[in-house]
Design a protein around this nucleic acid. Structure first.
Lengths: 207, 207
DNA sequence: AGGTAATGCGAGCTATCGCTCGTATTATAT
DNA sequence: ATATAATACGAGCGATAGCTCGCATTACCT
């Protein structure tokens, strides 16, 4: 199988100057990924775009995979912020209303910088996906499952783990596919119908 | 954005000797993808593993992307053979029975050489996915939609295009995720429950 | 002010990649 | 048997990648 290059930062930048450098590197990586594609994201090019030398780059990151991982991380945090707050806000609502909101948020989340999201979705498998995406998924699973548990009286199933798997996978796939592969399906009107459909699908399954 | 390298074969091999060469190249590409990862699949390495010279490789393919595309093609044809026959066999059955079978087949299809499937799923975006995966999806969509049309009296929705999108996306995502990310969920028993759940999900949505 | 640590620099080494091209080998046709 | 086309070979070229290292610059401390 494939090897796994290191993705951890090297030196933890302490002064402010260096933090600016690190930011510039991550930002440059994101820009290149979006505007030039993964293959052009060489360490030399990243450093150039960031207005920083390769040497400095290697002081903070062991290679380009680590930079990409950092970008993924930042993006995931943006997404998780939205997801977390939505699931908190919805905790005490009945299933129908809650699911509808969750579906809407899933679509919203995929629309955070969708061009970056697309490139990352394509490239995540090639990077240290373990820590990043897996952690992201675990948290989503945990949050959703917690919701189901606290509303188990409204449900008809016993295996909440399985139910979580089915719901999260379904919602994520619908949002993902709609946003990334069917850009035209995204007039506000179309989003509304999609939310309706997905909600019916999931709610019908749950109760 | 990124450019798109050519993926069409060059010379159409006519003699038998050359067809053997082409086969060896494709087979070697698949083996390397599975056992060493996408990054190691250089043209030099592919030729080496195939027991063929680089020169010969470039007589038939313009580059490694084309080889990968060929592997994808072969794999997709394997899958589509299964999917097509299942959808034909199911054409006259009622929704419940048909969906159950389709879900089972989706899982089966994902279990055709799953290690190869995984690498391809990861790498398809980087290749000429247009012709390959898009064509595959179009056919799946068309086949499934045809089924829905001929059973529209059992359904309660009007927009069959949307329904197809929802069903195909959902079934594919559940099968894909279960097979690729949750290998342990795949005891025969677990597959059975998963099929049950997915069937309930989709059938409940359709009628 | 002077000293030390942190940060930044970038020419350039090595490795590897994609790919070509002149040549050798094998098949087919007559 | 000879000619012609098809196929195979692989050394090696130019490009580019990842990465290091010795040196320059800037910040911090007392």
């Amino acid at each position: 199988m494939a090897r796994k290059p290191p993705t951890k930062p090297r030196k933890h930048a302490s002064q402010e100057r260096s933090r600016a450098t690190v930011d510039a590197l991550i930002e440059a990586t994101a820009r290149i990924l979006v505007k030039e594609g993964f293959d052009k994201a060489s360490t030399n090019r990243i450093a150039e775009v960031a207005g920083v030398s390769v040497g400095s780059l290697y002081q903070y990151y062991p290679g380009k995979e680590a930079l990409v991982a950092a970008v993924i991380d930042r993006h995931n945090q943006d997404i998780m912020r939205v997801v977390r707050s939505a699931l908190a806000e919805v905790a005490s609502q009945p299933i129908e209303k809650a699911v509808r909101r969750i579906v809407a948020v899933a679509i919203e989340a995929h629309r955070i910088d969708p061009r970056l999201h697309r490139v990352l979705a394509e490239q995540i498998p090639r990077t240290g996906r373990l820590a990043n995406l897996e952690a992201f998924n675990r948290e989503t699973y945990a949050l959703f499952r917690a919701y189901l548990e606290s509303h188990s009286d409204e449900l008809r199933m016993t295996d909440l783990g399985l139910a979580t798997f089915v719901c999260v996978t379904t919602i994520e796939a619908l949002a993902h596919t709609a946003v990334l592969h069917n850009a035209q399906k995204l007039s506000d009107e179309a989003v509304k119908t999609l939310v309706d459909e997905a909600t019916r699908l999931v709610v019908g399954y749950l109760k």
